[in-house]
């Protein structure tokens, strides 16, 4: 081998080592900025009552089957927001992230996040503080701590109120813990959210579709909400379906939608999360498809959020 080839190869080795080292040095990328959500499947593109791909437990499925769309017309829930972890993948997830920096050490004490949808906010404490006592107040966004693992900010959220994970009856309980992985790649941010709910989920529910691009021109508008006092459902009444009486199209074995997701798969559960389930789905009987609009908006698809 002549010396020029040796030099060339050495150059590549040096370059590779430097890139790898540089990547490590770059590990703790700053997350602050204005982030515009990238178009994505807003989880739940099927029929209302289609839980395919969600690892609901039997209790979670029962709970979901109880849900009535009239729930949104209860005064108590008129201002209920998408909680932080759900809002990340939902609509209007324009996000501002900023940091608190300790003046003396110039180290980040906390990241703060603000989402456009119903003004949900989070604080990610980076200073190693413990989570509050179990009996402290729970909130929609919970209490979050974070630590870097390489170039990924891993956050852990506790003290979460019970709330929906889709606006069609799927709930998470107040025993949930959410672990999220924030990764910045240049001007892009990707967040993976893992929901651990021992009550309404049979396995962790992983959501990976959430990406943003940094956009310094992004405007995050206010989104206030005033409690509704005059609503369609009389005050004090709770609308729900009794067992076996749900009118949600996804729970009707005789209906299907343009995706032709079989009824059996629409019931959800851990099995439906995994790729091998696709082969099993093909063995289920096919039903007559709904035409778009047969069951009103969302009935023929696109009703998840």
């Amino acid at each position: 081998m002549n010396s020029s080839r040796i030099v060339l190869r050495l150059s590549f080795v040096v370059l590779a080592v430097t890139v790898a080292a540089g990547h490590t040095i770059l590990a703790q990328a700053d997350l602050a900025g204005l982030w515009r959500p990238q178009p994505r499947n807003q989880d739940g593109s099927g029929m209302i009552g289609d839980y395919a791909g969600v690892p609901v437990s039997p209790a979670g499925r029962w709970r979901a089957e109880t849900w009535s769309p009239d729930d949104y017309d209860l005064a108590e829930y008129a201002c209920r927001p998408h909680a932080w972890d759900y809002s990340l993948e939902g609509p209007l997830s324009q996000m501002r992230v900023w940091s608190d920096v300790d003046h003396a050490t110039q180290k980040v004490i906390a990241y703060h996040g603000h989402l456009n949808q119903q003004e949900q906010e989070t604080t990610i404490w980076m200073d190693g503080r413990p989570h509050p006592p179990a009996n402290a107040l729970f909130t929609w966004s919970g209490f979050t701590t974070g630590a870097w693992e390489g170039d990924v900010l891993v956050t852990t959220t506790t003290h979460l109120k019970e709330t929906y994970i889709r606006r069609s009856g799927l709930m998470r309980s107040d025993r949930s813990i959410v672990r999220s992985r924030w990764r910045r790649m240049g001007d892009y941010l990707q967040i993976t959210s893992i929901l651990y709910d021992p009550v309404l989920m049979a396995e962790p529910y992983i959501r990976t579709t959430m990406t943003w691009v940094e956009d310094p021109t992004l405007v995050v508008a206010p989104y206030p909400c005033e409690e509704a006092t005059e609503v369609a459902v009389p005050r004090g009444e709770v609308r729900h379906f009794l067992p076996g009486q749900s009118l949600l199209p996804g729970l009707n074995p005789n209906l299907t939608d343009r995706f032709n997701t079989p009824y059996e798969a629409r019931l959800g559960g851990p099995e439906t999360m995994y790729p091998e389930y696709i082969a099993k789905m093909k063995t289920f009987p096919k039903r007559e498809g709904l035409k778009r609009g047969d069951l009103g908006r969302g009935g023929g698809g696109g009703g998840g959020n």
Partner: peptide, 29 residues
């Protein structure tokens, strides 16, 4: 070029960086 942002990032290191989070988190009662 890689070294320039590395300097910028260094100043943004977290308090107590490197410490592992306890999983699952223990909530005191």
């Amino acid at each position: 070029a890689l070294l320039i942002p590395a300097e910028r990032v260094y100043t943004q290191a977290a308090q107590g960086a490197g410490q592992k989070q306890v999983w699952p988190p223990k909530l005191e009662e």
